[in-house]
Design a protein around this nucleic acid. Structure first.
Lengths: 113, 113
DNA sequence: TTCGATGTTCGACGAATGTCGAATACCGAA
DNA sequence: TTCGGTATTCGACATTCGTCGAACATCGAA
């Protein structure tokens, strides 16, 4: 597989359990929060987490398959962005609500911003 | 352990990831929907799923530890209920939203009612 | 006390998951 | 074409998870 072209599922084909599973992991939830905290895209290399590159790639793949994020290639680099608007049409309020709950969870080990 | 007395965590002590993990499993999500569909409690034996009793007990334990459900003993029998009001205080809108999304997911393999 | 009914726990199993380092594929630049 | 940077895939590993049947614990009834 080329690092440039990825298969993004249609949000209509994504199941709720898949989305919840994708969000039910600290590292992935952190990535989603990171993406939500900024409008637009984020460069792959700017996702700065204490994990190996292969692990990050793995998590992004899961988020991708869950319809949560989108990958865009530009030259050698990749950019990641939330599919929040599409997701809103499929699961209204879900992403927004989970993100809001993240803040309610902050300070208790839920992983600060 | 007695089947009567269980330890229910305070909702304040439950982490978001724990709740999401508990919900991110088809059988458990189905149980939660089942409980949400009816006001009040549900008898253990009325939770009619194609799984072994020990498996059901296992899932209920996970839901319990996630602060999602409460167990009440009455004689030899147990009753289960959603902790929706408490959860609403800790993670506003989350449970309601997920339940609404279940319906949006219905008919696609997300498990009908 | 003895029994039967009801949940829980235990032990085991295969499957899935999160993690890493190494190998691979791709792109742009030299 | 060769090389360096970037992301993905592969192989391996330990851990966790979902599942079951069997053994156990508790309560109410006989």
């Amino acid at each position: 597989m080329s690092p440039r072209e990825h298969t993004h599922p249609a949000v209509e084909d994504v199941e709720l359990v898949t989305v919840l599973s994708a969000l039910a992991e600290p590292t992935r939830l952190r990535i989603v929060r990171m993406l939500a905290a900024m409008e637009g895209e984020r460069a792959w290399k700017d996702i700065d987490l204490p994990i190996a590159q292969s692990t990050l790639s793995h998590h992004l793949k899961i988020l991708r398959n869950a319809g949560l994020v989108r990958n865009r290639a530009e030259g050698t680099r990749c950019f990641v962005s939330l599919r929040d608007e599409e997701l809103e049409g499929r699961f209204p309020g879900l992403l927004e609500c989970v993100l809001a709950c993240c803040d309610a969870d902050a300070g208790r080990g839920g992983g600060g911003s």
